[in-house]
Design a binder for these strands. Structure first.
Length: 390
RNA sequence: GCAUGGGUGGUCGAGCGGUCAAUGGCAGCGGGCUGUAAACCCGCCGGAUUAAUUUCCUACGUAGGUUCAAAUCCUACCCCAUGCA
């Protein structure tokens, strides 16, 4: 009993693989899509739906956002993010590293860490590898991410190299502080789990932007430090699409075969299929929920925009091939009306469908991998989605 | 009936002699969202025409008038609001 998580490959098809990931709180079949729940909620979607119908086994939380509000002290006092939110399945918490990128105008970066000017009230908030680990212990997530610097996708070689070196130093500091916290009582999510330590797991993050040599270096040095799983960061952050697939082609199957591979922040349905095909096991992305809130619908026939006038009297479901509860009951016409009328239910229902679609898509890739037919499925899917019959 | 204030593009509402096809808001139409500062952001929005920030047409209640020039000034009429009878 030395592991905090356990991951085993259950089938392989080319570079793609299925696996079973066991955390102290849930069993997760991979490839898996993890809905994003930045502020302790998957926006617009009740946990009941995530549990009962969608059967999501793991969702995200965000260190930066929960650090600012309500703050780690409140969450600790309320028993950790699981108890606080009532989400009792697995949580993966991002370290705040992405906010180093997305809030670039609001932060100052140094060797020590990052000083943010809070986007909420302008006050100064300091995040470092150590603080991030402490906050994530207070949150009590199953999977903790190292605090990294995520450079823009089109960053030059030298800039990327510097960033990568900093991220590696931060990775080491993250791990050191993480290890200390695991032997103290800091982790609010501790629970006994059969065959597992019941403690948190820590994932390292490979950076290097579009530079393959730097990706190699980042991978080698990150693995050398040693983590429970490895993530690919710094993609889908402004670079051209071929760059992302190129990096995945190059790096994904060089990553440790016996640990889950997590592509951070990606992506579109096409991206997921392409990345699974290249050997990635885990994903998260705001797209299904954010686009859902703004009228974007993902379907097995491609994307559609519920705002479009063509749906005014369309009595078909959002996706004719989707068995989700939204598609079983509501028409495009009605959902368009809700959206146009500014009714919040539109956001909820479309987000729900989109998540159902994403999770179904992952289920589908798993079954195709097990059947050894992923390549065929991939080609068929990409063609269908791009043709967009609707 | 008298008095006063109004009638502007789908709508509400600015403009009050030229730079006005006419500011804004809303509605409408379209696009974008990739480890969430996003229930958000960006375009278009009288008609036709062009390679074009091109040219033309129709428009500021109706009809006349003044002026080189009118949504803007004058006259009459119609309608609306409020007040007084």
């Amino acid at each position: 009993m030395t592991k905090s998580i356990d991951w085993v490959v259950t089938a392989q098809d080319g570079r793609a693989r299925t696996g079973t990931l066991r955390t102290r709180r849930s069993i997760i079949e991979t490839p898996v899509f993890m809905p994003v729940g930045t502020q302790g909620t998957v926006k617009g979607v009740r946990f009941e739906w995530l549990e009962d119908e969608l059967d999501a086994r793991i969702i995200l939380g965000n260190t930066y956002h929960l650090f600012l509000r309500p703050g780690p002290d409140v969450i600790r006092e309320m028993g950790g993010l699981h108890k606080f939110s009532t989400w009792d399945r697995s949580l993966l918490t991002d370290s705040g590293g992405f906010q180093v990128f997305s809030l670039t105008d609001l932060r100052k970066l140094s060797e020590e860490g990052v000083e943010f000017r809070s986007h909420l009230d302008g006050s100064k908030k300091f995040l470092s590898p150590e603080v991030s680990m402490e906050v994530q212990a207070a949150l009590g997530s199953e999977i903790v991410m190292v605090f990294d610097e995520c450079p823009p996708g089109d960053a030059g070689h030298e800039r990327t190299k510097q960033s990568l070196d900093l991220t590696l130093r931060w990775a080491k500091r993250s791990k050191d502080r993480f290890d200390e916290l695991q032997v103290s009582a800091a982790d609010t999510g501790a629970v006994s789990a059969d065959g597992l330590t019941g403690k948190q797991a820590l994932f390292g993050i490979i950076q290097g932007a579009g530079h393959l040599d730097l990706r190699d270096e980042s991978l080698a040095r990150t693995v050398e430090i040693g983590f429970d799983g490895y993530a690919i960061g710094g993609l889908s952050v402004g670079e051209e699409k071929p760059v992302m697939y190129g990096v995945l082609d190059h790096i994904a199957n060089k990553m440790p075969v016996d640990a889950p591979r997590y592509l951070m922040g990606v992506g579109t349905p096409e991206d997921l299929v392409e990345a699974v095909y290249r050997g990635v096991d885990m994903f998260d992305c705001v797209m299904p929920t954010r686009n859902g809130r703004t009228g974007g619908v993902f379907t097995w026939q491609g994307k559609l925009n519920i705002r479009n006038a063509q749906f005014i009297t369309d009595d078909k479901p959002l996706d004719v091939d989707c068995p989700c509860s939204v598609c079983r009951r509501y028409s495009r016409s009605y959902l368009r009306h809700l959206y146009q009328a500014g009714e919040m239910l539109a956001a909820t229902l479309i987000s729900h469908h989109n998540l159902a679609f994403y999770l179904d898509l992952m289920r589908r890739t798993r079954s195709e991998i097990k059947a050894g037919t992923l390549e065929f499925f991939r080609r068929d899917f990409l063609e269908r989605v791009s043709n967009s019959e609707k």
